[in-house]
Design a protein around this nucleic acid. Structure first.
Length: 486
RNA sequence: GGCGCGUUCGUCUAGGGGUUUAGGACGCCGGCCUCUCACGCCGGUAACACGGGUUCGAAUCCCGUACGCGCUACCA
């Protein structure tokens, strides 16, 4: 049995699209599942789209996701180079061979003429398609024009009749009428190949056994098949993945949310969670398991279980899943992961022990890293502003005033305030005043945080420390109850 | 417009002729836990696009319609 060889072949647009992430992931899972090889190939044949640093960024992002490859531009391999712009001569040579074999032809039509032709066809409600002018050129004419140095491209000579069928692993038999397929440009006038030529040539020389890519490529397969046939190359198995969709079911795009993996990284999604979530967009093992490690995905993945229909990228489920992963993090990694978000939120994190306590106090309430800025806000306030209506209302209760008054008196008799002491104090207040439960605890919570919700009070007390607690309670007594000199 | 692909709860999906009162997850709603929120736990809500066939029987097979998406570039 031959080794499975698959490839992830993105064009370097500057960032990794989540749809690309899923394509990369499925290729990766398939390769690892079969002890095969994953190749990273950069498809940069469109010079007008060149983005500096895009490849480096792509590699960095891929690394972050945990998707590793065996051959690629940065690590080399036996079938390199792995950047298409470095393989130009190979494509030119093959384009010329196709012409010699009569499977392709030179075309001297100008972009202007083609555009005009297309507009007219659309106006006449005809399918836009190259009209074959240059296909009918005599060899003498071609030789003449070539000699004159007229700019030209090389076009694929599609059969005018018959049909092309192929087996897609995910969709079964797919059939196209040859006559409806355009004479695709294979080699552009700048000498660079189009995707259709480059991908076939590279897949062949890189010994790719399975082409796993997005559904948008399905209609161009017959063109590729022509090239394989012309050279007598073995055709790899094909699997066309369903698209990732916006909530309105259009193709996933910017404008309706984040599409770059880097965006999710920046917002504090964990790579394990993003990978887990994306893996389930279009695939599932048929069990009721939802949380998968990469190893579990590798063990269970199969192309046969990939769905045919597009999947909406549901940020709510991603949020939930990311929260699950955050809550599973070991303490040290949790602190390591969340501290930068606190820092970015403008908080002082220089006291490591305190930062750790804050993180442990709030981590259960967040879904993603950036959420901690809001969740931890109460720990970085210098004064209490009680703006929440429920909180103001609660402080109006007679019992609230009593609790805070007694609490403050007791605080003044202490020289330290730890969790146990705090609990002891609360117990005493309950015994002395008969106030308990919410009426007992909530005034303290509001006095310290300004709101009616938040982490467990003992955590808050411990992180604040005696002086801050005293100060905040005094502020409330003064401001809310107009007590002076308390 | 043409071609292709698709269509099970709002979303991700299980199911592939009788096992289904169509299962799970997210979300939402309710309850428990609890000083509160969150976590956790328990429960509830909610779907086979439509119309014809085939069959004793169809969410499952076939055909049609509708709708959605993709492609229709010297972009990938």
């Amino acid at each position: 049995m031959t080794t499975v060889r698959v490839r992830f072949a993105p064009s370097p647009t500057g960032y990794l699209h989540v749809g690309g992430l899923r394509t990369a992931l499925y290729n990766f899972l398939f390769a690892r599942h079969h002890q095969g090889v994953l190749v990273l190939r950069i498809e940069d044949t469109d010079r007008s789209r060149y983005v500096p640093g895009a490849v480096e960024n792509l590699i960095k992002t891929l690394k972050w996701t945990g998707i590793t490859y065996d051959e690629g531009p940065d690590i080399g391999g036996p079938f390199g180079p792995y950047v298409q712009s470095q393989r130009i001569e190979l494509y030119r040579e093959h384009a010329r061979k196709l012409v010699e074999m009569g499977r392709a032809y030179y075309c001297f039509c100008t972009p202007e003429r083609l555009e005009k032709m297309r507009q007219e066809q659309i106006a006449r409600k005809q399918p836009p398609k190259y009209d074959g002018t240059c296909r009918r050129l005599s060899p003498e004419d071609v030789a003449q024009k070539l000699k004159e140095g007229i700019p030209h491209v090389i076009r694929l000579k599609m059969p005018l009749e018959g049909e092309t069928s192929f087996e897609d692993i995910i969709r079964g038999t797919v059939t196209f009428q040859n006559a409806l397929i355009d004479d695709q440009v294979l080699l552009k006038s700048d000498g660079y190949p189009t995707y259709h030529l480059a991908n076939v040539v590279d897949d062949h020389y890189m010994k790719i056994t399975h082409v796993i890519r997005g559904e948008e490529w399905l209609p161009s397969v017959p063109k590729h098949l022509q090239i394989y046939d012309a050279f007598g190359w073995e055709v790899p198995k094909m699997a066309h993945l369903p698209l990732l969709l916006n909530p309105d079911r259009s193709k996933l795009s910017k404008r309706q949310g984040d599409v770059a993996v880097e965006d999710y990284m920046a917002k504090g999604y964990l790579p394990e969670a993003l990978v887990n979530f994306v893996a389930l967009l279009g695939w599932n093992p048929g069990t009721e398991q939802e949380i998968f490690s990469m190893d579990e995905l590798i063990a269970q993945f199969s192309l046969e279980r990939v769905n045919k229909a597009g999947a909406v990228f549901d940020i709510q489920k991603l949020n939930w899943m990311n929260g699950v992963y955050i809550r599973k993090l070991p303490e040290d990694r949790l602190v390591e992961f969340l501290t930068p978000f606190l820092e970015r939120g403008g908080y002082d994190v220089s006291d490591k022990a305190r930062t750790r306590k804050i993180i442990l106090a709030v981590y259960k309430s967040i879904d993603k890293g950036e959420d901690i800025v809001e969740a931890a806000r109460i720990f970085f306030q210098e004064t209490v502003e009680i703006e929440e209506p429920e909180a103001r209302e609660f402080l109006q209760k007679e019992t609230s005033h009593t609790v805070l008054k007694v609490f403050y008196e007791k605080l003044n008799q202490l020289d330290k305030l730890d969790v146990d002491t705090f609990k002891q104090v609360m117990k005493e207040i309950q015994n002395e005043t008969g106030i308990k439960k919410q009426d007992l605890w909530m005034p303290v919570r509001i006095a310290l945080t300004g709101v009616t919700h938040g982490p467990e009070l003992p955590f808050v007390i411990d992180i604040f420390g005696l002086e801050k607690v005293k100060s905040f309670v005094r502020q409330v007594l003064e401001k809310v109850y107009q007590e002076s000199g308390v």
